[in-house]
């Protein structure tokens, strides 16, 4: 019983980082209806920038965090200008494929900067875990959870309480009409992309600082976890992103405990598959129009 509760707590903690990754993902997907596969690799480039500052110049934790976010945002804007801005509105596949190409490019850049496979990353918080009734909670995990909930609330407020958020939701509703009421659509999309990359940068920094290491594989890992969490939670939904992340984390924690680490990822993909078949819009997202079942 105690294992069950402890595993669930661990899952929620790991899942909050997935939720953060999904939050950035869902912001891009929600506004553009296009998949950015370079999302994780952009964050990874930010991570490498932070690592270089840490290893070469002994930068402190806050400076490293800033570098990761700035690196992720700059790389994110680079991806937007190259893969999304020039593409016509309907050409989602072209954007996705070109973002895959940039993914490969970014991975090679990372390997050129730091050729060994693994490098150290500064730790978020050291010290003993907190103990509540013989249940353990790591301090750094708690920080990640608070950041995830705080940022999700901030994004939700931005979307539903600000003029800029109104503009973004108008673009989601009908891009042509958004132009017609005088919204600068290109600029709003670029800003949304930069904001999503900044959230991804925060997520990436927290995950790296908990793991205390970085590898070129981090980009793929971040894209996959963010994507699965977003799909489970609901495309384009902010609460859905967090919920999907937490659910994925809990699921992974339990399957790792009962079946081992190899089965863990298998379970995650199985659940994704089940969602795609049974509830393609995710937990909180409305079913996208493309998934309307065919009538006989």
């Amino acid at each position: 019983m105690i294992d069950l509760v402890q595993n669930t707590i661990d899952g929620v903690m790991i899942g909050s980082s997935y939720g953060l990754l999904a939050l950035g993902f869902t912001l891009i997907f929600g506004v553009m209806r296009k998949l950015n596969l370079s999302y994780g690799p952009s964050i990874m480039i930010g991570g490498y920038l932070g690592t270089v500052l840490y290893l070469q110049y002994g930068a402190g934790l806050l400076a490293v965090a800033g570098a990761v976010v700035v690196g992720a945002v700059i790389t994110g804007i680079y991806v937007e200008r190259l893969c999304f801005a020039p593409m016509k509105a309907g050409a989602g596949i072209a954007s996705m494929v070109s973002s895959f190409a940039i993914w490969m490019q970014l991975e090679q850049v990372a390997i050129l900067i730091l050729p060994r496979h693994t490098y150290a990353f500064p730790a978020l918080a050291t010290g003993l875990p907190l103990e509540f009734w013989s249940l353990l909670v790591r301090i750094d995990h708690l920080i990640v959870l608070c950041c995830a909930l705080g940022l999700a609330a901030a994004v939700q407020l931005m979307l539903y309480r600000t003029r800029f958020g109104l503009g973004l939701r108008a673009i989601v509703g009908n891009p042509v009409a958004a132009h017609l009421v005088g919204i600068n659509v290109q600029m709003a999309v670029l800003l949304a992309f930069a904001g999503a990359s900044a959230i991804g940068g925060v997520a990436g920094f927290l995950v790296l600082a908990v793991d205390q290491q970085i590898t070129p594989m981090f980009g793929m890992w971040a894209t996959l976890k963010g994507l699965i969490a977003m799909m489970i939670g609901g495309l384009g939904s902010v609460p859905g992103a967090v919920l999907g992340g937490l659910l994925l984390g809990v699921l992974e924690a339990h399957s790792q405990w009962y079946f081992g680490p190899h089965i863990r990822d298998l379970v995650a993909y199985l659940v994704l598959f089940a969602f795609l078949v049974l509830r393609p819009g995710g937990l909180l997202g409305g079913a996208p129009e493309t998934t309307t079942p065919l009538k006989a």
Binding site: L166, G167, R169, N174, V176, A177, A178, L180, V181
Partner: peptide, 26 residues
């Protein structure tokens, strides 16, 4: 110059009030 487009193109997932606010975006 404002265009009321063919087929209306209201923002379907936004309330009537928010649609009007969006009209005053500038």
């Amino acid at each position: 110059v404002a265009l009321v487009p063919e087929n209306r193109l209201v923002f379907p997932q936004m309330s009537v009030h928010e649609n009007l606010l969006a009209g005053a975006y500038q």
